[in-house]
Design a protein around this nucleic acid. Sequence first.
DNA 1: ATGGATTAAAGTGTATACAATAATTTGCAT
DNA 2: ATGCAAATTATTGTATACACTTTAATCCAT
Lengths: 237, 237
Amino acid sequence: MNPSADGLLTPSDSTDSGAQQIRDAIRDAIVERRLAPGTKLSESDVGGLFNVSRTLARAALQALSYEGLVSVEKNRGAFVAYPSPEEARQIFAARRLVEPGILKSAAEHITAAQLKHLRHLLVEEGRLMGERGQSARRAEIKASGDFHLMLASISGNLIMQRFMEELVARSSLVIALYGQSSASSCGHSEHGDIITALEQKDVDTACHLMLHHIAHIEADLDLRERKSFGLKEAFEH
Amino acid sequence: MNPSADGLLTPSDSTDSGAQQIRDAIRDAIVERRLAPGTKLSESDVGGLFNVSRTLARAALQALSYEGLVSVEKNRGAFVAYPSPEEARQIFAARRLVEPGILKSAAEHITAAQLKHLRHLLVEEGRLMGERGQSARRAEIKASGDFHLMLASISGNLIMQRFMEELVARSSLVIALYGQSSASSCGHSEHGDIITALEQKDVDTACHLMLHHIAHIEADLDLRERKSFGLKEAFEH
DNA sequence: ATGGATTAAAGTGTATACAATAATTTGCAT
DNA sequence: ATGCAAATTATTGTATACACTTTAATCCAT
């Protein structure tokens, strides 16, 4: 039985090539934090939820494990990834390493239309910050990531784009686990500043702002080992 | 029937968890260029070669497609990837973007033992350059990549390490397709120079040398669209 | 012979079936 | 009641089976 997965996923009524679809749906659920880290994803449950056989469910889970969003343990099954503090540090180290370069490349290629699109994403993000409720929060989380992904897309490098997709998704998991201030939105204005620097073709400033921005997100994390003690320890004293 | 796969792969006699093993074996075969770009990898053939069912063969091929080493076309099957010139450019752009950062991080963490290990890899690489024959060539290709992977490993970031593994493997495919001077070894001395710079804690120089090195490899490529025209066109005039 | 439609073969997409492993429950002795 | 062992259940690992798509081969008409 998996009560926590009830109604969490949205099996889209579609005509597509199977596993990919399921993978995307589960990924969205993880990134938007409808599925908590550590949640068991049994093949039968996943298959049942999407009305497919275990074969496809398994393929989807396997795919997600390559992205680092799901960890599969031999003979034990798949779980929503539960990144360790060290893993979290490495994820953000990777972003610090990579995002300035992406930004630089994006600055070289960016068109007026794309700049407008970025601004559009920004106001959308702002609007969601104003709204209240679960679904607005989820949309906000996604929007915040989309800003970074849009930059990767503008950079014109598909490989870096896919890599950033992985990093952004995993970041969402890390923030879900270790984030403190519920305001994941704190970085909103920083996004705006980066766009402004881009508009002015000031790449160095933009990169600087980006590093600052990532540092801000990281600063909101409490990366102490969560021992996840069970019942007994939890109620001692 | 797939004659070209005959005797190319080495089904290791092992006790492991199935698909992973097959994936690794095929990846090695691709990276060491025993499998040419475009080669069809049918699920039955792969399964037969490793004495497993299509299920596992398929899983392995799927996994390789996530790494960009194999491309699977719906209802048509899996093929050793045949990167386009544009894809090739993006792979090397990604390396230029990422490797200086990795090198910087490696320089911060490197120990004396690791430096020694790097030097050891270097002499091994040199030794292989001297030898003659297919298997030496393959080993040399692998050794050349291992230098870059070792740096990623030293950087201490598992995520960047895995990313570099993907980039190095795909680079091998690109060189197989578009490389001109058969001497993939031309970069050997440059590897040495980078190590020397590392020894002297001169990170800036090391990064510079690295960028130069990557540029050198790229310069040896002829990135023109290969139309791969068939028979008729090939014999017109 | 050549071109095109039809038919046969081969291969992939997905579901199901069976074997092996891990988790859970039951039963028993203390 | 508590702790351990055996048996039961559930879940994963892998193979096989069947449906569907693509590719190749065959056949006929021109």
